[in-house]
Design a binder for these strands. Structure first.
Lengths: 333, 333
DNA sequence: CTGTTAGCGCTTTCAC
DNA sequence: GTGAAAGCGCTAACAG
């Protein structure tokens, strides 16, 4: 009983042709029809499969793409990873998934591992400033991040326009005084521009910016609770705002939770718009809240396309993809 | 300017030692201290990294584990993938993630790809019967699945005991007539035993089994709505059941949704226990509903351990890990 | 169009 | 101990 998997040599012997011919058949290089038939029969007979590692060694192509992401336990990350995997597969690439938990050491460790494995490209959603650690022999795209070192190509949603769009929608739906609620990581990211967009929209519409914008080290629930309490007139049980633009859908959910605790109705008393485009898991996959949707499939596609487009690599640009407003029950429209 | 990454040969030349010596240093094989120092200096100087593919070709070890899963868009799958990644990383392995969307052709395709890549092991949560397609040269663990062909080692939660536990808890909390609500895939899986557990628990407690157990091709929301309507006394606005054991947390959520639509209160009118142990994404990571929790970290660990424990492979056994009850606000305790 | 052959970078005997 | 040398399975360049 043969224990070893068949090699190309075995196929060549079986088919009665030369090694190179087998290789050509496998790689779709023109070859005489009779040879082709013989080789294909031998491949089937022996159940031969190319050894990816031998091929990778020879060609320096690994057919893999590495994604470094904090975790999968947040729907946004999970969905992004899913889309990247689908795109990678569509391009015949396998996805190596790395969950860093947002820990800088792990991010660097994964980056190192990736460069050892000679992956074809890296998509990184990292918190630490990796700009100095980037392996220069492998294409790397930073997703949703901002770096001082602008030599890294970056892809993100148009967060700034998203912030403006949220306020525009809220005003359109009759809000007079929308506030911003959100928490940001201590590392600068593209998502910070949502807040900038809010400020800009206020300016444009001659509104006074009112906001809770703390770091994510705070207890979100308590912070929001306190914020809302500060803006409440207890005697009349009314709030001095009538709309919330939340930094993420999750923040929106927490805000809605608190609002309900305090006896306010969404969207009647307060309309809420989140950010990301997170869907419910049931039924019919509606949006969890009214939201500014990030185009996840398009973002994933763009990342993969840039990595695989070797000719133009690296283009240290910032690519921004447009966001859209989606109704999710927490606004009137 | 050198464009190529340094190889072991370069390191040897730089350090003034032989190739084999460098290899030994890298692989932790004893070597003279002075040599070791020289080699390590050269490695650092050249910023050398081993080429995983050359090594893989030589050793037939790839340091990767492949996970085939339907998607990441359901929290259970995403969390499982996350845990597997963490475990793989802890064992110095990279995770290749494959999302099959539950499509049999993609599942087979991924299986084929995995065997080509000579991955060190495959963890598969598949819907089609892959038992005949399993590459016999690579360890494969089926997660949460049932096969006619019992030659495949399988790992799952103890779904049967989970079903019994759910009813036991419901009774403990004062329920008199718990029902089962759920939907199952048309492919047989370990999860089917939750229902079996429910039936058994009814028998034990001399209860008449009442249930909605349809295939997941149905519209879950409408089916549940109809089921509840059938069990409603419109005149008194009461239900003829007071507890629900749902097949998954998601089904539990839908049921709760419908219950609230119809004006019933959870847990006052009806107590609900789901299955899986899905957490909210905020705040404080509480459970989404009261639930029978699957021990995801332990399950992931077990999968990886079995794959890496080559000596005992393959053990075509079914390994069942214990589940626990967790409070999530939809029961009284 | 086909067969031969020289490595890709590494591990691993095997002499020394 | 160390160094030399033989491949792992494949691709690609070249000669026929």
């Amino acid at each position: 009983m043969k224990k070893t998997t068949p090699t190309m040599k075995d196929v060549a012997k079986e088919a009665g042709v030369a090694l190179g011919t087998v290789s050509k058949v496998i790689n779709g290089i023109p070859v005489g029809e009779t040879y082709k038939v013989k080789v294909e029969a031998a491949i089937k007979k022996l159940n031969y499969q190319v050894n990816t590692y031998a091929r990778g060694l020879k060609t320096s192509k690994t057919e893999t793409i590495t994604l470094i992401i904090p975790s999968l336990n947040l729907p946004f990350f999970a969905s992004f990873a899913y889309e990247v995997e689908q795109q990678a597969y569509a391009h015949g690439r396998k996805l190596i998934l790395c969950c860093s938990n947002g820990i800088p050491e792990k991010e660097l460790d994964y980056l190192l591992l990736a460069s050892q494995s000679k992956t074809d490209g890296i998509i990184a959603l990292t918190y630490s400033d990796i700009s100095n650690q980037v392996p220069n022999n492998i294409p790397l795209i930073a997703f949703d991040r901002k770096f001082d070192n602008y030599q890294i190509p970056r892809i993100a949603s148009d967060n700034y326009e998203g912030g403006i769009l949220a306020i525009q929608k809220l005003l359109e739906f009759g809000c007079k005084s929308p506030v911003f609620i959100g928490f940001h990581s201590s590392f600068p990211g593209e998502a910070d521009k949502r807040f900038d967009g809010y400020i800009e929209a206020c300016k444009k519409n001659q509104l006074k910016p009112v906001y809770l914008y703390a770091t994510d080290s705070e207890d979100c629930h308590d912070s929001i609770y306190n914020f809302i309490k500060e803006h409440e007139n207890k005697d009349t049980h009314t709030l001095d705002f009538d709309g919330i633009f939340a930094n993420t859908d999750l923040h929106a959910c927490i805000a809605i939770h608190v609002l309900k605790e305090l006896g306010y109705s969404v969207p009647d008393d307060v309309q809420v718009i989140g950010f990301d485009g997170t869907k419910k898991f049931y039924p019919g996959e509606e949006y969890m809240v009214s939201t500014i949707r990030q185009p996840l499939p398009e973002l994933a596609k763009k990342c993969i396309d840039m990595i695989l487009d070797e000719d133009n690599y690296p283009i240290p640009t910032l690519t921004l993809l447009p966001v859209t407003y989606e109704y999710g029950g927490t606004t009137i429209g």
